[in-house]
C-alpha cells in the first residue's frame, strides 16, 4: 500500500551565502496509513518548516516528497491547493476558522472548493460537527464559541474532508487542560477509526497519545521511536 507521507532526503534552505539557514536538512521518513505520529522538537528544530512541507503548504528546496502517492515537488500554487483540498485536513494552533461564518459554513468550506453539491456538503458537515459533539452549535460563529469548541470545529472541518492525512500543528497550544483532553480524545478516536494523523507538538502530554514519536533537532531526525 502507498505510504501517506514519503519524504526522501528533504532539505529546505532559507537565504543564501553566509545567511543560509538549513531549516530542514536531509530528512527521510515515511508515515504509513493508519499511523498516529507525533513530531517533537524544540523551537527552531525545523518542525514547523517540516509541517509546512508535509501539509503541501510549502515546497522543499531539494529532495522528493510524495503525499499519498502524489509527487508534490513539481506542483505549482494552484495544484498544491488542489492536493491540500483533497488529501490534507489541517488543525492549527490558532484554530484558523473564518470569522463571521457559522461553524457549519466553516466545515463546509473545503468541500465547497472541492465542488461537493450543497446538500451533500451540508450533510457531511453536520455529521462531522455531530461527531465532535457540537451538533447544537452548528450556527454559532467562531467568536461565540470557546477555544475548545473552536478547535473541535476545526477538527470537524478536517474530518469532513475525509483526508488521507490529518495534520495538526500544536493543536492544543491555545487550550486549557480540559479542552486539551477533549481534542486529544477526538484525535485518538479518529485514529481508532483508521485515520492517519501527524501532530507537531512540543508537549509531552500530546506526544504521549501518539504511537510513534519522531524528534527533530537542528533540522535532522534525532530519534524515531515506535510504541
Amino acid at each position: 500500500m502507498t505510504p501517506v507521507v514519503e519524504l526522501v532526503d528533504i532539505t529546505k534552505v532559507y537565504g543564501s551565502g553566509v545567511n543560509e539557514v538549513r531549516a530542514v536538512d536531509g530528512v527521510t521518513l515515511t508515515i504509513e496509513r493508519g499511523e498516529f505520529v507525533a513530531v517533537m522538537g524544540a523551537s527552531g528544530s525545523g518542525k514547523s518548516t517540516l509541517m509546512n512541507i508535509i501539509g503541501a503548504l510549502d515546497v522543499a528546496t531539494s529532495g522528493t516528497y510524495r503525499l499519498d502517492g502524489v509527487d508534490v515537488g513539481e506542483l505549482d500554487d494552484d495544484a498544491l491547493s488542489l492536493v491540500r483540498n483533497r488529501r490534507v485536513g489541517f488543525i492549527f494552533q490558532s484554530f484558523n476558522l473564518i470569522p463571521r461564518m457559522s461553524a457549519v459554513s466553516n466545515v463546509e468550506l473545503p468541500l465547497m472548493y472541492r465542488g461537493v453539491p450543497r446538500t451533500e456538503r451540508r450533510r457531511r458537515a453536520l455529521d462531522a460537527l455531530g461527531s465532535v459533539g457540537l451538533a447544537d452549535r452548528t450556527h454559532h460563529q467562531p467568536n461565540e464559541l470557546s477555544g475548545g469548541q473552536q478547535q473541535r470545529v476545526a477538527v470537524a472541518r478536517a474530518l469532513a474532508m475525509q483526508p488521507a492525512l490529518m495534520l495538526a500543528d500544536e493543536p492544543t497550544g491555545n487550550l486549557d487542560s480540559r479542552s486539551t483532553a477533549e481534542v486529544l480524545d477526538l484525535l485518538e478516536q479518529v485514529h481508532a477509526e483508521g485515520g492517519t494523523i501527524a501532530v507537531i507538538t512540543h508537549e509531552d502530554e500530546v506526544a504521549a497519545r501518539a504511537r510513534r514519536v519522531i524528534t527533530l533537532r537542528d533540522g535532522r531526525v534525532e530519534s524515531d521511536v515506535r510504541r
Binding site: D78, S81, R84, N85, L109, P110, Y113
Partner: peptide, 16 residues
C-alpha cells in the same frame, strides 16, 4: 490576509 490564508490552506485556488 489571514482569511485568505485559511481559504488557500483548505484548498481555494487562485481563481476562487
Amino acid at each position: 490576509t489571514r482569511e485568505i490564508g485559511i481559504r488557500k490552506a483548505v484548498g481555494a485556488t487562485r481563481r476562487y
